[in-house]
Design a protein around this nucleic acid. Structure first.
Ligand SMILES: [Mn+2]
Ligand SMILES: [Mn+2]
Ligand SMILES: [Mn+2]
Ligand SMILES: [Mn+2]
Lengths: 221, 221
DNA sequence: ATTAAATTTTAGATTAATCTAAAAAAATAT
DNA sequence: ATATTTTTTTAGATTAATCTAAAATTTAAT
């Protein structure tokens, strides 16, 4: 029904749409699909014919309910497979994205449901991203960026908003893993960098650039 | 490097070649790929350019060493995923082939090796088919068809040579699963059908058609 | 050895997904 | 309000995989 390629477009439109909560531009899609704007225009016309997106020439694109349902299924599969790769096969969190990009297109409802059960119905993937359920419903999550946390607050790390292997490896080396406790000790005004203490009592310096990409939940200390 | 489609051609040429141990005809490939002979001719020319097959117009096709290595990797993945689906996710043996047809094309050496380890380095898939190792080496297996077994002999079921869901479901209903013990009690000459006793002492009637597709290993009683 | 039948290959089209270059529309700047 | 720049769409090609119909080759049968 929906090809590998179409699924990738829908997933990308979903992500961009969630970020801005408005119509998505042709160029934005082209950037993430690693194609040219001309190719995107063509595909949007085609997705529109299939009722997967609402698309008016020059006016950007949005997913229809149907399109969003397809996108959420793909995202569900991507994140469940990432959990499998990390929890069951022992991959590191920076190694699983590319493989999950392939596995997310395997077409079998039965497989997804059984995998979900096998993994113990996880609510979040190895990067802290929420996993939609069978009906496409995301678990509620209210997190903040570490960069918004005030001095003295104690938080626990629940996710990352940047998924590049280099970033994830850097975090792992620092001891910054999902679930770790962080206390903000100092905010250096001139560059907004932070001095923090982790659960293991080690002290670290965190640049604003890094802090912006760490998702945390405050915790009573 | 090798596309989904090319991998399927190689796998099919491997199978046909193993059966007849000689050149494979264009029509035979067309039948299994569910395409037309014209399409196959085209693809054979292309695979030949890529050094994956030896192909002379009108003379049939054979895999090169390279082509065979690729085919064996695909077969290895197919069978490992089938073990995963049955052993870990609880699928029945008649439900896994179609899903494995998709999973076998996932491209990650690391994934295959870790999956193999996770499964405990199985030597046979849920249908008794041998799983090639990383180097493409198949475990040795010397089996016979149940139809070749003489009255009085005791055997253990080690595989099937027919993989259709209906056949597999029929066997399951009869209690004929991999590893089950079978004693041939009677051979009915007129239609070569068999009366057998299973390990659980139940008696069954097995047609010649079915017996031909059951792979067994004789066992000292 | 011819002829007939079956198999296989080529020729020419089609579909999906992509591209470059040019045209059209929208957004921005003077 | 016009002109300039940016964005988006169309037009025309390309590549992979497929098809049908026709031509070529091989195999089988007189
Ligand atoms: Mn990912
Ligand atoms: Mn993830
Ligand atoms: Mn199979
Ligand atoms: Mn099998």
């Amino acid at each position: 029904m929906t090809s590998f390629t179409e699924e990738n477009y829908l997933k990308i439109i979903y992500k961009l749409s969630a970020e801005t909560d408005s119509e998505v531009s042709t160029n934005a899609v082209a950037e993430l699909t690693l194609t040219k704007a001309a190719s995107v225009s063509d595909m949007l016309r085609k997705l529109s014919e299939k009722q997967l997106v609402n698309y008016q020439k020059y006016q950007g694109v949005r997913l229809t309910e149907l399109g969003e349902a397809v996108a959420l299924k793909v995202i569900r599969k991507h994140r469940l497979w990432e959990v499998f790769l990390v929890e069951k096969l022992g991959f590191n969190w920076d190694e699983v994205h590319e493989i999950a990009e392939q596995l997310e297109h395997i077409d079998s409802e039965e497989l997804v449901e059984r995998l979900d059960e096998f993994l113990g119905f996880p609510k979040f993937d190895p990067h802290g991203d929420p996993i939609p359920d069978t009906f496409g419903i995301m678990p509620e999550l209210r997190y903040q960026n570490l960069s918004e946390i005030t001095v003295g607050q104690s938080v626990v790390m629940v996710g990352v908003s940047e998924h590049s292997a280099t970033f994830l490896q850097y975090l792992a080396k620092m001891g910054l893993t999902l679930g770790c406790h962080i206390v903000v000790k100092e905010l250096n005004d001139f560059d907004k960098s932070l001095n923090v203490k982790l659960g293991d009592l080690s002290n670290h310096f965190i640049s604003h650039e890094v802090a912006k990409n760490l998702l945390v939940k405050s915790v009573k200390n």
